[in-house]
Design a protein around this nucleic acid. Sequence first.
DNA 1: GATCCGTATTGATCCGGATCAATCCCAATG
DNA 2: CATTGGGATTGATCCGGATCAATACGGATC
Lengths: 223, 223
Amino acid sequence: MYVTILGDQARKQPLAALSLKSGGSSETRLKAGSYLYLEGDAVEWVFQIKTGVLRLTRLLEDGRRQVIAFGYPGDVVGFPSEGLHHTDCDVLMDACLQPYRRAMLESGEGDPDLHRNLLQAALREISAMQDHFMMLGRKSAVEKVSSFICVLADRVGTKIDGHSGMTLPMSRGDIADFLGLTTETISRTLTQLRKSKIIEIRNIHTILILRPTALRGLASRGA
Amino acid sequence: MYVTILGDQARKQPLAALSLKSGGSSETRLKAGSYLYLEGDAVEWVFQIKTGVLRLTRLLEDGRRQVIAFGYPGDVVGFPSEGLHHTDCDVLMDACLQPYRRAMLESGEGDPDLHRNLLQAALREISAMQDHFMMLGRKSAVEKVSSFICVLADRVGTKIDGHSGMTLPMSRGDIADFLGLTTETISRTLTQLRKSKIIEIRNIHTILILRPTALRGLASRGA
DNA sequence: GATCCGTATTGATCCGGATCAATCCCAATG
DNA sequence: CATTGGGATTGATCCGGATCAATACGGATC
């Protein structure tokens, strides 16, 4: 679920396995702009994303916001702690989710395979969050934005006019709150990447990677 | 049987190999300065900390470091992802650990209670990391340092001369790498808290909280 | 005690990204 | 069409924390 610098190939694998046996009711469809749960809600279900994009956020009283993660197909969202949700979760792109009863994660009675797959998803989550710590704590703006684009391309990139490209369903503000920056800095950094011909900004929500090697260099070394 | 690893001598020998011989269920003792596992090591065991303090870190090629977490009694460390460790783990204060076979977490055959407890630990971990995201991404230096002291006091504080106090087994550099700051900033911020009589720095590794309410205010509002 | 050395503190300066402030760009709407 | 309003971009300036640099301290060793 976490957009991080390490491409996680295994992330795509469990989807089929998880889908085989549904631990709960049928799939859930949600429109962009709606929400799935709020911080403090009791957790009844965890969800695997089949299509669409979700956004997980936490808020401070004074309005400061941290985007914890963007959820893409294959990700599992809604892991409980003490039985409660600890983020808000809303929908950026129309989504289709497979719900599983919380008990499938926590005890797994009757379906050890499903149980194990949900657990593995939680463990991958921990690992991905550790990557993101490094991003938030120790990387510069250029490194952050470049990493973000690289990871997104690995995860959900498609070929566009012979280049790796992707759609960004989230706003500049969302990216800023994910990377610990401001919208202005996101905008400036993207412009800088565009002017140095490393990326092309086809439109506000579509980016092409023109020079992948250069971008990866910026992502890991900032230069 | 006690398994004790001493400094340099142990550097080549993974702990897991040693514990394997012991049958796996006896407790493990480690000296400050030794390490438990390194990034990339295969995960054979997860450990619950009974006493002592551990440090989980990740490194960038250029030497930048992020302290992912400090492990205190009750914490579980070593959660695998794809079967591998994704951080280094070393010992800040002599520690006593309870090892559990990785299978106890991942399948739990034979001991559902243990399985469930390890799983809950992993879920708490996810929640705790989400808090830390907000810290790293959106808080100022004063807020970070104040939060750090508050959390530590709640977790492992003791009464000293009528005040809540604690020992800091980690260096200023460790705290800096945990909070995404520099040692100089940690030092300056602590001095500032000391001069405003909110904390007392009894010695480098011992801090007392003189005005808890003020400190909590700084932790959440920075003012 | 004196010396040494690694960590911590303090000071001076610099700079990356935040902040404040205009536009600009569209998509939605009438 | 023209209008409108919210996000995005760009510019000017500021400031918090980094960086560079100089002590200070404290524990270990002899």
